[in-house]
Design a binder for these strands. Structure first.
Lengths: 201, 201
DNA sequence: TTTTAGTATTAACACTTGTTCATAATAAAG
DNA sequence: CTTTATTATGAACAAGTGTTAATACTAAAA
């Protein structure tokens, strides 16, 4: 139940990284928030970069993508709009999950400065989602549920508003403003998008 | 023709800010790239923040939004798809303009750390575009050119992929990879979106 | 030519950064 | 109780940070 010092360091570090970025959060800031002296950190981590790497390898996959791909996509994709609703719902969930939100903020800060973070964003985050979505749209097209088009294009067009809305929720929440308006954007997006692509002849 | 020292400082500062962020770019880095000593900077700017403020107030509006709103929107909106194509084209242009690109990178880095940057993004960038687009879509609906819907929702749905594609172009260009694939996303977006909303009864 | 305004330099300041080392406190294992 | 492994401390380090002050250089105005 009680967190180990190592876990506390990781928690505090993620919190500070998400607010100030990697360079902006110092070892002394982290240690003082944990309640120890800066030198004690080095009993748990080799150096500052080691803290970063531990956070990244722990959270990059879990905090970004949904990877509910253990369930057979063939079946769930045939649910059409429900599938999209579920996809967006889990996407939205990540925007409101504490650790995921912090990692998302951190990723956004580092994105333009750090090649490793760019790779994580492109592969673990973007490509992973595009793959699931394009496959799902392909199935929906085969089933004549939606207009026929390029599945990858459709996946991008569906995904990019989701990303933007997630970013917007994060931004609004930083300034402690009520994010309930932004919260509805996800559902509106599903309705709008489905209405556009559905094959209702 | 020859740039003044003050202009050089601003150019170099923007370049470094866009790569390392505000905190990551030091006065000594800037001065050495300009070819002067660090103390000489203070003959041109009060302090580091003064450099930042000068850059922001100079570039925030021009590098982010298109503000071609000097032309009457009533007329151009009636051109339908052409209007959207022009809008996206100027959006794309900014992604390939050197200074605009750098400011965009800088804005992305600071977005999660700096309230002022968040305000610029929300107002100068996002709201400004949404306003133009929602008005345009409203006109198109009145003219029966497109399906009737919530103009603001449609504006968001149209704009957010543009933002995402612009970000993606920027990311790809950082690693010097060929961005020609991402470059086509803008046009594909227009075609896809127009196809979805056009009223072809 | 002398005065003056603008811009450069050198040196120093107080402070923060990541990291190391010898040492002390603590708690589990013998 | 003693040994041992783990985790804490305090002090110090070299390097980097933003900024200032005194001073020199340079070019136009008097």
């Amino acid at each position: 139940m009680k967190k180990t010092t190592k876990e506390q360091i990781l928690d505090v570090a993620l919190d500070l990284f998400s607010q100030k970025g990697y360079k902006g959060a110092s070892i002394r800031m982290i240690s003082s928030k944990v309640g120890i002296r800066e030198s004690a950190i080095y009993n748990h981590f080799k150096n500052k970069e080691d803290i970063l790497n531990t956070i990244v390898s722990t959270l990059s996959s879990s905090s970004l993508s949904l990877l509910s791909s253990n369930k057979p996509l063939e079946e769930s994709a045939k649910k059409g709009k429900s599938f999209l609703r579920e996809f967006a719902a889990s996407f939205k969930l990540l925007a409101y999950d504490n650790k995921s939100e912090k990692f998302f903020r951190f990723m956004m800060i580092e994105l333009m400065q750090n090649k490793k973070m760019r790779d994580i964003f492109m592969n673990d985050f973007h490509k992973a989602h595009l793959k699931i979505l394009s496959q799902a749209f392909f199935i929906m097209m085969q089933e004549d549920m939606i207009y026929s088009s390029d599945p990858m294009l459709m996946a991008r067009e569906f995904l990019s508003p989701l990303f933007f809305y997630r970013m917007q929720v994060t931004l609004v929440k930083i300034d402690k403003e009520n994010s309930s308006i932004e919260s509805t954007l996800f559902e509106k997006h599903i309705d709008f998008f489905w209405e556009m692509i559905v094959n209702n002849k």
